[in-house]
C-alpha cells in the first residue's frame, strides 16, 4: 500500500477477535514512555530536585497551578484526569512526528501511525471525557440537582435543557473531530510534502506540527476541564 490518505487505521493482526491496529500499538508505546519517564523521575524523590525530577516537577507544577486557577477546591479530583489527557495526547502527538512513522512497514502496512490520526482513539477519549464530566457532575451535585439541569417545568427552560442535551453530544463530536482532524491533516501534509521533496522542505511543517501537537493536547485538556467545572456547578433555578 502506497502513501495514500487512509482514514481507517491499519490492522496489524488479531488477538483472538480483537484487532490490533497500528494506532493502538503506538498508544501503548506512548503509555510505556510516560510510565517509564514517571517511574524514573520519581524513583528517588529528593527535596532538592535535579535532572529529570526537576523537569517533571516543572511540568506538573505548571499543570497543577493551571487547573487550580480554574477549578479551586475540585483540583485534587480534576487535576489527575485533565493532566493525564494532556500528557497522553501530547506524547502521542509528538511521538507521531518521529521518523519511522508511516515508513516502517509490517506485512505491507505501516507499523506506526500517529495515535490521534485514528478517529477510534480520539472518539474514545472524547466519550471518556464526556462520561467523566457527567459522572463528576452527579457526584458533586447529587442525582436530583444533576437532572434538574436538563429538565424544568418552565417551558423556556425545558427548551434550553433540550438544547443543552444536544450540545453535550456536539461536545463529544467537536472534541474528537478537532483532535482527529488536526493530527490527521498534519500527517497528510507531512507525507505529501515529504513526497514532493524529502530533504529540508518538510522541516517548517515539522515545527508547525510540534506546535499543533502541543496546542491540540492543551485544547483537549482545557476543554475537558472547563466542561467538568461548568457541569459540576449548581444550576441557578429561579
Amino acid at each position: 500500500m502506497e502513501h495514500g490518505i487512509v482514514l481507517k487505521p491499519e490492522i496489524l493482526g488479531f488477538y483472538k477477535n480483537f484487532p490490533i491496529t497500528n494506532t493502538l500499538l503506538v498508544s501503548w508505546v506512548a503509555m510505556a514512555i510516560l510510565t517509564i519517564v514517571s517511574v524514573v523521575a520519581t524513583w528517588r524523590v529528593k527535596i532538592i530536585p535535579s535532572g529529570l525530577q526537576n523537569f517533571v516537577e516543572a511540568v506538573i507544577d505548571w499543570g497543577y497551578s493551571t487547573v487550580e486557577g480554574l477549578s479551586g477546591k475540585k483540583t485534587l479530583v480534576l487535576f489527575p484526569l485533565v493532566m493525564t489527557f494532556f500528557l497522553f495526547i501530547l506524547t502521542a502527538n509528538w511521538l507521531g512526528l518521529l521518523p519511522g512513522f508511516g515508513t516502517i512497514t509490517y506485512k505491507g502496512e505501516p507499523l506506526f501511525r500517529s495515535v490521534n490520526s485514528d478517529l477510534n482513539m480520539t472518539l474514545g477519549l472524547a466519550l471518556l471525557s464526556a462520561f467523566l464530566t457527567h459522572f463528576l457532575a452527579v457526584r458533586y451535585l447529587g442525582i436530583k440537582n444533576y437532572l434538574l439541569k436538563w429538565v424544568a417545568l418552565n417551558p423556556i427552560f425545558l427548551f434550553v435543557g433540550i438544547l443543552e442535551i444536544i450540545s453535550e453530544f456536539t461536545k463529544i463530536i467537536s472534541l474528537s473531530f478537532r483532535l482527529f482532524g488536526n493530527i490527521f491533516a498534519g500527517e497528510v501534509v507531512l507525507s505529501t510534502v515529504a513526497g514532493i521533496f524529502a530533504f529540508v522542505v518538510p522541516l517548517p511543517f515539522y515545527f508547525l506540527e510540534i506546535i499543533v501537537g502541543f496546542v491540540q493536547a492543551a485544547v483537549f485538556a482545557m476543554l475537558t476541564l472547563v466542561f467538568m467545572i461548568l457541569l459540576s456547578e449548581k444550576h441557578e433555578v429561579k
Binding site: K8, P9, F18, P19, L24, S27, D118, N120, L123, G124
Partner: peptide, 11 residues
C-alpha cells in the same frame, strides 16, 4: 472512519 467499538473500549 473505521470505528470499532472494541478499539474505543481499548482506548
Amino acid at each position: 472512519f473505521g470505528i470499532n467499538p472494541l478499539l474505543l473500549a481499548a482506548q
